[in-house]
Design a binder for these strands. Structure first.
Lengths: 193, 193
DNA sequence: TGTACATCAGTGAACGCGCGTTCACTGATGTAC
DNA sequence: TGTACATCAGTGAACGCGCGTTCACTGATGTAC
């Protein structure tokens, strides 16, 4: 039966939200539409009343994941005004973030998949990545006086790579060491002025 | 009909080889066994005479991809004895490497997928990653006199993250800038002694 | 404000398709004598 | 070395299954008067 416009919009948003978590946990190909819809409290058939295709949902889910985690980062930073960039690094390179794939950074969780995805998905990633470059640049500049866009990009690369690598390791010590060594190196680089 | 033991071993190796390229290009879930076998000049049915399951092939293909690309890196480095580490960085962070996903670094091409994979696949990655840490450590030490394992790991994180990010960008300039900014930053870090 | 009807979000079953896996069969290879 | 037979890599067709997608139907919502 028909539901109110407000309810329908709410349902749609819930589907995107659920998908953004499931995709990060198991990849685009690892999650079926049936599972997404059921986790949103709906049935499979209704999917095409809200989305044109699975690809459309993927693009929107990436967008959503990028936005919520960008807010996560700025929240963590603004909660520690005395060392906001340090707080961001500590959070991003923590074992908690490593273990919460579904709620964490989409670049590390889905980067390899997005490299093979279509332009709509890459566009969502690009927008989110640009925002992150800006945030990092501002936070480093805040504590160091200045930060180039290039340094900010390299720092982001180090963060993403370390998180990605730490998740591919069987050995817990080595996994942790990727997080710690990256955090140390970034602090050293940024501290140089 | 039966083929000679030598021929069978050769066929098996070709399947692993083909799979290691196809998986890097399109992910574990994006490639079917039929396609792998056909690209190796065989038919689908024969697969289970050589492998216990698709998962077994995935683990072997990762192992193979890790080994061949590690050799690739040491070859590039030893071809430039006057600046072997610089040559490695130039190669890894080149647009050619970025565009040759099927022949390139499995960590960037499959890192997100491997984070979700089983222990056999992670073990293959771990071995390959450990080897890379050692290679980078030695090459930096060679030109700078010394290099800690931690610095080597952070450098690897930067390399992998930059390549991964460059592949998720629609914009060609931004994509390239991830490669260049990472190369510059690594050179600066390593140059500090 | 109340009534009559069109709209359309959601349901549940079905569609064709490609997947990983299994199996009966073939016939050259490997082996025992 | 030559012969007889067992082995088994590779073939091709089939299996059940879950996938993305489609569709007839439902009935509360939204709208026109």
């Amino acid at each position: 039966m028909r539901v109110s416009n407000a309810q329908a919009a709410e349902n749609r948003a819930r589907v995107v939200e659920v998908a953004s978590e499931l995709f990060r946990r198991r990849g685009f190909d690892g999650v079926g539409l049936k599972e997404v819809m059921e986790n949103a409290g709906l049935t499979q058939g209704g999917f095409y009343k809200q989305f044109g295709s699975k690809g459309e949902l993927i693009a929107e889910a990436c967008d959503r994941a990028m936005e919520t985690t960008a807010r996560q980062l700025t929240d963590v930073a603004s909660a520690a005004p005395e060392d906001s960039f340090g707080a961001l690094i500590d959070f991003y390179l923590s074992t908690e973030h490593r273990d919460a794939v579904g709620q964490g950074c989409p670049v590390a969780a889905l980067g390899s998949d997005v490299g093979r995805a279509d332009d709509a998905v890459k566009a969502a990633f690009e927008a989110g990545v640009k925002a992150r470059i800006g945030v990092i640049e501002d936070l480093i500049a805040e504590s160091e006086g200045a930060c180039s866009r290039e340094t900010s990009m390299a720092v982001l690369s180090t963060m993403v790579g370390a998180l990605l690598l730490s998740r591919t390791m069987d050995d817990a010590d080595l996994s942790r060491k990727f997080l710690d060594s990256a955090a140390d190196e970034i602090r050293r680089v940024v501290g140089r002025g």
